[in-house]
Design a protein around this nucleic acid. Structure first.
Lengths: 196, 196, 196, 196
DNA sequence: AATGAATGAGGTTTCATTCAT
DNA sequence: GATGAATGAAACCTCATTCAT
C-alpha cells in the first residue's frame, strides 16, 4: 500500500530527526533510528535505500517543514513590517525547537560542503527563504518603508544570513534565556539595514 | 626535546586541518592525519592522547590563528571605518582559505552543541571576536560615525553573526566567484545597521 | 528466540574454551573464538558484551560443568571411601580433558588475583568443591573411617588444595603417562591425612 | 663492564617482578618495566633480547631466589620435623611476599603449558623442591618419625603439591588473615600423610 | 650506554548492510 | 511486510621493537 509506506517513511524520518538531534550526525546509528521509531532494525533498510538515503530525505523533509511554517506566518500578515516580524517570529519559534532543528541543520550543512545532494537540498531551501525575503522587501518598498535602491537579491540573502548567523551563535552559547534577546537583535539588525 | 615535540604537534595539527577540510570530521581517520603529515600511523597517538585530543587541539589552534590575523589587521588601522574594512578584509581572506577554514569550522560547531570542550573553545573565540567588534564600535562612536545609542555588546554580537552567516551561506552556494559579492554585502550590511 | 540465543552462546563458549586452551588467555583473539566456532568475527560481539564478558561467562560455565560432574560421581556412591574414590576419579578424568581444563583454569586463576569477577566465580567453585569434601568427610566420620576430631572445613579445603596441587604439578611435567600416578598419589595422600 | 651489566639486568628483573605482580603478565608493558626500574624505555631492549627474554630471565631468577631461601631455612635445622617446619615457614613467608610471588608464579605456570622455556625452568624449580622434600623425608625415616615404606619421590612431590595447592587457594580467597591458618593446615596435612 | 621518537602490526569494537525466516 | 541474526569492513588504539642521536 502506497499510503502506508509514506506514513512509515515519515515515522522513520521524525524518529531520525530526534535521533540526529540527540546523538549527532556522526554518532547516530540505524539502530538509533529503529529505537526512536519503535520499530525493528530492518525497517529502515526496507523503506530507504541506505543510511545516506535517510539523511537526504530527512534534510529535504525538515527544510520543507520549516519553509512551510515560514510561508504561513508571512501570508497571514499584510504589511511589510508585520510580515518581517512574523517571519522572524516563526523562525525563532522556541528555544527547544530551535535547538533541535539547528543541531540537525548544522550537522547537515557541515556535511553539505562535501555532499552534492545535501548542497542541492539546502540550496533549494535557500532559494525558498530568499524568496520570502524578497517578498517582504518588495512589500516594504511599495509601502515606502524600505528604500527603492536596495538590491533585492542581495538584501534577501543578507536577511537569511543574519537569521542563520544569529541562531547559530545563540546555539553555541547554550543559554536558552538569550533566545529572546537574539530574536530581538536579529529583527532590529535586519530592520536597521533595510531602512532608508 | 620540548621544542621538537611542539613542532611535531603543529605539523600534525596542520595536516589534520587539511585532512578534516577534505574528508570531513565524520570521515577523517588517524591514518589520514598521518598521511597528510607524511608520518606513520602511530605518531598521532604519540603526540596526542587520542583522536578527540587532536580535534580539540585543532579547534583551539585554528581559532587562535584566525583571531590573531584579525587582531593584526585591525591594529594596523586607525579609523573605525578603516578598522571595520580591515576586519572584514581579513575575515574574507580568499575563497580557498575561507572554504578550508569554514568547512572545518562548521564541522566543529556542528559537534559543539554536544561537546562541552568544543563549546568552550568556540566561546573563547566568540569572546575574542566580540571584543574586536566592540573596539571598532567604540572607535566609531568616538569619531561620531556610529550612534552613541548602540548597545555595544549586542552590536558586536551582530557583527560576528553577520560575518558567520554570510560566509556559511557563501560556502553553501559553492561558487567562488560570489566571494567578493558576499564580502561587499557583509560589509555594507554591517555599516548600514551600525550607522546613525 | 531465546533458546536459539542460548545455544549460540554455548556454542561460542565451547569454542572459546578450546581456543583458550590452545592459544592461552593472553594470546587468544576474538577471531580465534569465531574460527573455532565456525562463525564470523562479529558474532561474538553480538552475543557477548565484549571479550571480557566471554571470559567471565566461560569461567562460570566451565566451573559449573566440572562441579556438576563431580556431584554426579559422588552421589552415585554410598560409602565415604567410594565417594572419595569417585570424586578423585571424576576429577582425574583423563589426560586430555585434564590438560584442556587445567590450562584454561590456570589462565583464569592467574588473572583472578587482579579480577574481582573471576575471583567471585572461582570462590563459588571453591565453595561447591569444599561442600563435596565436607560431605565425604561427614560420611566417613559416621562410618568411623575418619576421626571425629578432624576440622571439617579445614580438611575439605585441604582435599581441594591437594587435588589442584597435584593436577597443576602433573600439567607442568607435561607427561601424560604420569596422570595415573598422580591420581593414585593424590587419593593416597588424601586418604592418609584423613585417616584416624 | 660485565659487572655493571649484571647489576642492570637484576635491577630490571626486580622492577619487572613487581610490575608483573601489579599489572599481570598479560597487561604489563616494556614501559612498565622501565617505569618501575626508573630507567628509560630503551634500556630493557638493550640488556635483554626482547620481552620474552625478560620473562624467562625473571622466572629463572625468582624461582632460584625462592629455592635459595628454602635451602637456607632447611639447612639451619637438624631434625626432620624442624626441617619440615622451617621449610613451610620459609615458604609461607608473609601474606605480602606470598601474594606478590604467587601472583607472578601463577602467571608463569599458566603460560608454561604452552611455553617450552618456562616449563623447563619450572621443572628445574620442581626438581630442586622435590630434592628438599626427599631430604626431609630421608631424615625423618632415619629418625624413625616417618615410615620406611614411604615412596620417596612420590611423597616429595606430594609435599610440593600440597604447598602450592594451599598457597594458590589462599591467594584466591584474597584474605590475608587466612594466611596463618593455611600455613598451619598445610604443615598439619603434610605431617599427617607422612606419619607412620 | 642510554634515550625516546618513530613505526606499523595486530587487537577489539562498532555498525551498515544483507537475507533467511 | 517485518524481523533480527549474521557478516565483515574499517576504525581506534596499544605497544614491541628499531634506531638515530
Amino acid at each position: 500500500m502506497k499510503k502506508r509506506a509514506l506514513e512509515r517513511r515519515e515515522q522513520i524520518l521524525k524518529a531520525a530527526f530526534h535521533a540526529v538531534a540527540d546523538k549527532g550526525f556522526e554518532a547516530v546509528t540505524l539502530q538509533d533510528f529503529a529505537d526512536y521509531a519503535g520499530v525493528s532494525k530492518g525497517v529502515t533498510n526496507y523503506y530507504f535505500e541506505n543510511k545516506e538515503d535517510v539523511f537526504s530525505s530527512l534534510l529535504d523533509w525538515v527544510t520543507k517543514q520549516i519553509y512551510k511554517n515560514e510561508c504561513e506566518a508571512i501570508n497571514d500578515q499584510s504589511s511589510a513590517m508585520k510580515k518581517l516580524e512574523a517571519y522572524i517570529h516563526s523562525v525563532f519559534i522556541s528555544p527547544e525547537k530551535n535547538r533541535t532543528f539547528y543541531k540537525v541543520y548544522l550537522d547537515f550543512i557541515a556535511q553539505a560542503s562535501r555532499n552534492e545532494r545535501y548542497q542541492q537540498i539546502n540550496l533549494q531551501f535557500y532559494e525558498n527563504c530568499w524568496g520570502l525575503g524578497r517578498e517582504i522587501i518588495v512589500f516594504g518598498q511599495e509601502e515606502g518603508v524600505f528604500p527603492k535602491e536596495l538590491d533585492l537579491n542581495q538584501s534577501a540573502k543578507m536577511i537569511r544570513a543574519t537569521i542563520d548567523g544569529c541562531l547559530i551563535q545563540w546555539l553555541m552559547c547554550n543559554q536558552d534565556e538569550l533566545h529572546e534577546l537574539y530574536k530581538q537583535s536579529c529583527l532590529e539588525t535586519i530592520v536597521r539595514f533595510l531602512r532608508c
